[in-house]
């Protein structure tokens, strides 16, 4: 559970991610997807401590994060990243003044030089445009290119569990399909992916299982085919709140 002051941002949400599977977390804007991923990655704890220090918003986090059965709830972010739990934040989170090459190298901040070289080579193999953009500042790239850089950075951290927060946000259908292909390839290389998306339709083909959250609570869960076959999901797909395509700026 996560509270911001007295507002309940996440309530009794429990998700499980098994090795080498892609699990979707679907929900509308403000449903709690980002809070869920930030909490699993440890960022909500950082935010809570920071706010407590400056007397700002009171953030309460309850519940457990377990990695292969081990309770890592109290671990800070670097420890989780070292263990292989890596978050790729929403809105094409790149360092705008750094070049693509610098962004990718920084992704492997906690890894050895050899490991970074290997994982950056893997990222470039998955997303060939990265090589062409190597020396460009990330801030000069298109949204799709920035998303590739953001995913490349996360890959440079050598994840075993990758948390992708709205990777399709603001992308054209063609670029969305490309990112979905990349997610499938990442899974094929043994990395488990938890992908939060508002636009479920595009990402569903690559998802093994999924959860639907609304107003911070879990409302549905099931395999891809179960989710797709449920009447309410179908309704939501074609005109409902959580799966309807957004208009992008």
């Amino acid at each position: 559970m996560v509270f911001y002051e007295n507002a309940l941002a996440l309530n009794e949400v429990s998700v499980q991610l098994n090795p080498a599977e892609v699990v979707g977390v679907f929900g509308s804007n403000g449903a709690g997807k980002t809070t869920l991923l930030n909490t699993v990655a440890g960022l909500t704890l950082v935010y809570a401590r920071r706010e407590a220090r400056r007397g700002g918003v009171r953030v309460t986090v309850a519940g457990q994060v377990r990695l292969e059965g081990q309770d890592v709830t109290a671990w800070d972010v670097p420890e989780r990243v070292r263990r292989g739990l890596v978050l790729c934040r929403e809105r094409h989170a790149v360092f705008r003044d750094l070049t693509v090459s610098e962004n990718l190298r920084l992704g492997g901040y906690l890894r050895s030089r050899a490991e970074v070289e290997e994982s950056v080579a893997f990222a470039c193999e998955l997303m060939p445009p990265l090589r062409r953009l190597w020396r460009k500042p990330a801030g000069m790239l298109s949204g799709g290119e920035q998303q590739m850089v953001a995913i490349g950075m996360a890959l440079a951290a050598r994840p075993r569990w990758l948390l992708l927060d709205e990777p399709l946000l603001g992308l054209s259908p063609a670029l969305q399909a490309e990112i979905v292909r990349v997610v499938g390839e990442i899974r094929r290389h043994g990395v488990a992916v938890l992908v939060a998306e508002q636009y479920a339709r595009a990402v569903l083909p690559v998802v093994d299982r999924g959860y639907v959250v609304e107003s911070g609570a879990l409302v549905l869960s099931g395999t891809r085919s179960e989710l797709a076959s449920q009447a309410e999901v179908q309704a939501a797909y074609f005109g409902g709140s959580w799966a309807s395509p957004r208009t992008h700026p």
Partner: peptide, 18 residues
């Protein structure tokens, strides 16, 4: 690089373990 990153996008830098 980590110092520059922290100055630009703090939470993204934190998410990488900086």
């Amino acid at each position: 690089l980590a110092l520059r990153a922290m100055a630009q996008e703090e939470y993204t830098a934190l998410s990488l373990g900086i």
